[in-house]
Write a protein that binds this DNA or RNA. Sequence first.
DNA 1: CGAACATTTTGTCTAGGACAAACGAGAATG
DNA 2: CATTCTCGTTTGTCCTAGACAAAATGTTCG
Lengths: 306, 306
Amino acid sequence: MSGEQEAGPLAAIAAVERDTGLSKDTLRIWERRYGFPQPVRDALGERAYPAEQVEKLRLLKRLMDTGHRPGKLVGLELAQLQALGQGLAQASTPRTGVAAQYWKLLQAHDVAGIRRQLNQALVVLGLERFVVEHVVPMNEAVGEGWMRGELTVAQEHVYTEALQVVLRQAIGSLPGGASPRVLLATLPQEGHGLGLLMAEALLSLHGCHCISLGVKVPLHDLAAAAAMTEADIVALSFSAVFPANQAAAALHELRSLLPEGTAIWAGGSNAALNRRMLAGVEGVRDIALVGGLVARWKQAAIGSAP
Amino acid sequence: MSGEQEAGPLAAIAAVERDTGLSKDTLRIWERRYGFPQPVRDALGERAYPAEQVEKLRLLKRLMDTGHRPGKLVGLELAQLQALGQGLAQASTPRTGVAAQYWKLLQAHDVAGIRRQLNQALVVLGLERFVVEHVVPMNEAVGEGWMRGELTVAQEHVYTEALQVVLRQAIGSLPGGASPRVLLATLPQEGHGLGLLMAEALLSLHGCHCISLGVKVPLHDLAAAAAMTEADIVALSFSAVFPANQAAAALHELRSLLPEGTAIWAGGSNAALNRRMLAGVEGVRDIALVGGLVARWKQAAIGSAP
DNA sequence: CGAACATTTTGTCTAGGACAAACGAGAATG
DNA sequence: CATTCTCGTTTGTCCTAGACAAAATGTTCG
């Protein structure tokens, strides 16, 4: 009677690595050091993770991406972890009636509805305010919704897809600018392209000529592309998932690969951007600042090449 | 004088894993078994892979994705590997003047030009023929171009980005169909979304109501979404990179998760699709067949629910 | 020619040890 | 009071080497 074993789905270590983003090595050493996770063993003696533990691991990973350390988190209960995560978003999310509407649409996987909702906000606010005041907080709200278990990954994707369509459409309807020429990309470690799209929208809006290479572009290719396209600015996006130390290293290397005249702008929610930036790299802490930066660049350009 | 060591960039094992898609375990065991790769060791005794070997590994991986086995490939020279890869694409690629034009544009990273070129083809051929006769062979040509070292990853991405924009625009300008309701997605192992977009284009064209969840959707979320959206068909895309055995297993599980009335269509360049399909799953070997399948579905629907 | 079996080939898993890089607290300094 | 520096602690990644199942191939038999 004791220890009732729910035969819930068990995940192999490779699946857990894929779903959580924690490497096999890390999973094994956490088990050794902290006693968590504590997978059962299958007939072959291999680790088999109950869904519940995988869920907690996902949460842990997301919190670590925002700067927490595992030693402190591992001991906590699921509820405590969720509470930790809420603090972040709650402060900035405007809990207006609008957010509630999104929620209802997402619950129903209503793609068209979400798209309509987004488009409406776009029309009402205009592109700049739409991105800065609407999309950014909504992104956070959706992330938090997932963290609290109110949203599935699929529902997150419904939102992401719809937003992508709306942004791309908005970008497409903008007149192609001329200068500065901006090359957009993320590095190979980074698979999230939404930040890139948001940046492209604002940059285009401010008259930049955007060339997006999309996601996962090797550093050297990026440098080559910058040379070939005669880019004035190389803009990179770093989500929270990007290993913070590697971000700094990569930016350093990119700086050495590009001619001095080419600016580097780095944006996103990554922790590395809150630290002191190395010389010759502009850390864009807040996407709202993009407009000002472009203006500043144009000013400088007038000075240097009259 | 002998053994001149070019101080070319050395990659750590984690970077090689990321860039090639071969796991650390696999890299180490190939070294043990086949003697390749043969990385040098850095000051810490850790593997450091010369760029040349990484390049060969990338090629190996791509060939393995098309069905070759490593034991046979490892001994071959780079040129021989390239020759192996060419056979595939060369047969199907129409080496018309059009392809050459793309080449020139890609060499210059000319996103706008590529987009124009694609749009032109779209207008001339119409969406169906554009996808089937133009995009599919171009995808292969671009893949082969990368394999022969004529194209960088960044240039591949330029093409991908442009194609994405064009397809999305085409889809957007189509009237939203009503029936059947199709849910599109890829599983968590699969990061490539282009196939999905191509499928969405053709499905929409044939009057389907498409709901795309995008890339990397967990199986259970997908099933839940199918129920919630009352999807008639769940369409999955499997690129060559997807581990073939896992594809079969995943399809099997999905089949058991979905009600019988919900069809499963699986497409893409994955090797698993050329094997015998399990009952209740439609393997779409060629994207050109999508139109016929939709027609067939509509026929059947009339019969079952008059 | 296809089915059943044997034999290779291949990738993933296991274990524990080692170590550098990142972090955080406290001391010392401006 | 803020900054830099030092030093212990925390943490992830890498190492070796062995084991084994699943997939692919080859072989034999009906």
